[in-house]
Every structure is written in structure tokens, then in C-alpha cells.
Computed example of a mutant assay.
Amino acid sequence: MNLRQLSYFVAIGEAESVTKASARLRIAQPALTRHLKHLEGKLGAPLTRRYGRGIVLTDAGRYLLGRVRPLLNELAQVEAEVMELARRTPVEVSLGLPSALSCLADRFIERAATLQPAVRLRVVDGWSGFVLDWLQSGRLDLGVVYDHFGDMNGLVSRPLTSEDHYLIVKRSDRLAERDRITLAEVATLPLILPSRRHGLRHAAERAFASIGCHVEPVAEVDAVPTIRTLVERGTGFSILSESEIRFHLSSALIAIPITEPGLIRNVSIAFRAGNPVANLESLCSVIRDEALAMSREGVLGRAAGASVLEA
């Protein structure tokens, strides 16, 4: 069977007349009759029989009509929807990600392209502080951000996951043999941290304050690659997220779990309240579902566990 024969048969069955179906389809009656006979031959059953000036469907014909008609209607609807998508200009939505998570952008893009075909994601990366600034200034539509203690006014956020943060040390350092380190011990080390405009710095300072410590870093650096290079050279130590460690840590560095207490930051997706771009909530749901899937796979969030990071 092919779609043409089935659509011709449906027209004949609905009209109960080859002549009327021929006029409706604008196809010569002999040609329409040949298609009907070919279909009956392929099925091995008569589908119609003559009745006066018209035709009536046999039991097999009525069964086939009842099964095929909704399928053809569904195909017609799919065709109309695809044609509408082809005519529609894709809506570009800009998404900001922390640099640590930028390597996961392809997952978000592929998921959005599958479930939101009218949306085209444009992805940029930067510190959470930068992403928040870009959101509030209107340069971004959506942003994945870590906990941030700056001005979140005017932003709507949805939780995605959470991540542990680790002390980063040079592999040849004496601390590299440790399987964990307390936050109080971390406070005594020469730390290289980002400036106070970034969430990681705020989170670290709040964690240190919770145990009665105040830390002044030996250097403030707002570029993670430079931080990693300085730690490799033995200039100091730093604190980085699970994702940064999993995807960007070199073999020259070791990640040590921080305990008593641990340093955990939540990851959320945010957008400006009143953003005119349509379906942002729906797109947030798509990204959230993908983030949950990645957590279950062990490539994002606390579900991964420390053993993966130390491998």
C-alpha cells in the first residue's frame, strides 16, 4: 500500500462513488478505478461492490476506511505543522553559562533544538557575576548561575542542581596526599580567588565567616585558566567547582574535598521578569530536564560524587 492509493480509496469510500471521487480529486475515473483495483489485489480482498449507480463498502472496505482515515488526517496535520515551522523565522534566545559549565552547552542546544524547534540558542560563557550583569542589562535572555549574593532584583530563577567545591593544589604539593581538608585548614592557606563581584568569592567568604575566619587572598584573578596556571606554578591554592574540575582540571593539579563544613553552591537558571521573548518558562523546563538527566548520568551536580573528580 502507498499513501496515494490509500488517499484515493478514502475519497471513494467517503463519496460512495468513483465518479464523485474522480471529480473531487480531479483524476480521470479510469485511473482512479485502476488504483482501487490495484489496492484490492494487493490486499487480496474486495473493498467495494456496485450498488445502483454508486458503490458500497464491503466489510473489509469499512474496516480499512475506519483505520486509514484518522492516519491520513494525522499526516495532513503533521505536514501543515512542518510547513508552518519552515515559514516561521526562528527566535534567537541568548543563554549565558558559567565557564565551568560551557562544555555542556551542546547538550542544552541539542535538547532545545529537539523540543523547541522554533528557538535557536546562542550561548556565551563567563563568571556568574558577569552572567547576572548581562541578564539585568538585557544582553542575555537566560542565564545559568551559581548562588550569588549580589543584586538579583528583577530576575526570576528556577533551581537546576547543586555542586560541591574543592580545594585545588599542585600535584607535587604535600597536601596532594590528603583525601580531605577542613574549611578551617583551607582558611590558613594562600588562596587565589576571583574578585568580590563574583559569586564564588562571596560564597567562600560566607563559608569562612560561618566558622569565624576571615581570609584575604594572595591574588584576585577573574580568569579561571590563569588561576589554574598560578596553582600549577605553586603561587597558591584555589577553590573550584565540580564542573570546573571534571572538565578542565589538568593532570598537574589535584582536587581535595572540603569538609567541616563543605562548600556547596546551588545552580539555577534565571531570566528577567517581563522579558518579551515568548516561551522562556518552557525553555527553562527543557534545560532543567536536561540538567537533571546529566545529574543522573554523573556529569553534573552532586550526584557525580568525589571519586569521579579524583580519578
Rank of each mutant, 00 (worst) to 15 (best):
E281T: 11
V169D: 05
F208H: 04
E232C: 08
V186T: 00
T235V: 15
G298F: 02
S238Y: 07
N275P: 04
E297V: 09
G212V: 05
E244P: 05
L167K: 04
S285I: 03
R296M: 10
L240H: 10
E220N: 10
E220V: 03
T259S: 13
D164Q: 14
S195N: 12
R302Y: 07
E281G: 13
G262W: 08
E297D: 11
L183F: 08
I287L: 10
T161A: 09
I269E: 03
E260K: 12
F208Y: 07
A176C: 01
I264D: 09
M294W: 01
R272G: 06
V186D: 01
H202D: 08
A278Q: 14
L280I: 04
R302Q: 12
F237M: 08
N279I: 00
I181E: 02
A304D: 15
S268Y: 11
E216K: 06
L249V: 09
F271L: 10
A252K: 15
I256V: 11
D164F: 10
G298C: 08
R246I: 05
N266E: 14
I227C: 00
L249K: 09
K170G: 08
L283F: 06
R272F: 02
N266A: 15
P217E: 06
M294T: 04
G262F: 06
A204G: 07
H165C: 12
V169T: 12
P217C: 01
R233P: 07
P217M: 05
R246W: 09
S251D: 14
A278C: 10
A278N: 12
L200A: 13
R180A: 13
L191G: 03
L167G: 03
E163Q: 06
D173M: 04
R228C: 09
S243H: 00
E220C: 05
R246C: 12
G274D: 02
L191T: 00
G199A: 07
I245A: 14
S251E: 15
A255V: 01
I239W: 07
S210W: 05
E205Q: 05
L193H: 03
A176D: 00
D222Y: 01
E260P: 11
R196D: 13
S243E: 03
R178A: 05
V218G: 01
P257R: 05
I245T: 13
R233F: 10
V299L: 12
V169H: 06
A252W: 08
I181Y: 01
N275H: 11
E185R: 06
A203H: 09
C284R: 01
G236D: 04
N275A: 12
I287A: 03
E220A: 10
R201K: 12
D179Q: 10
L160C: 04
R174L: 13
V231A: 01
A209N: 08
G262C: 14
A252G: 15
P257V: 02
T188P: 02
A252N: 14
R288M: 10
V221K: 04
T161D: 09
H248F: 11
V169S: 11
A306F: 14
R206D: 07
I192T: 00
D164T: 07
V286I: 02
A304Y: 01
L263S: 02
A219S: 13
E242W: 02
V215I: 07
P225D: 01
I181L: 00
A255I: 02
A176R: 06
I211Y: 06
G262Q: 14
E244Y: 09
I269R: 07
V299H: 10
P194D: 00
R228W: 08
A187K: 07
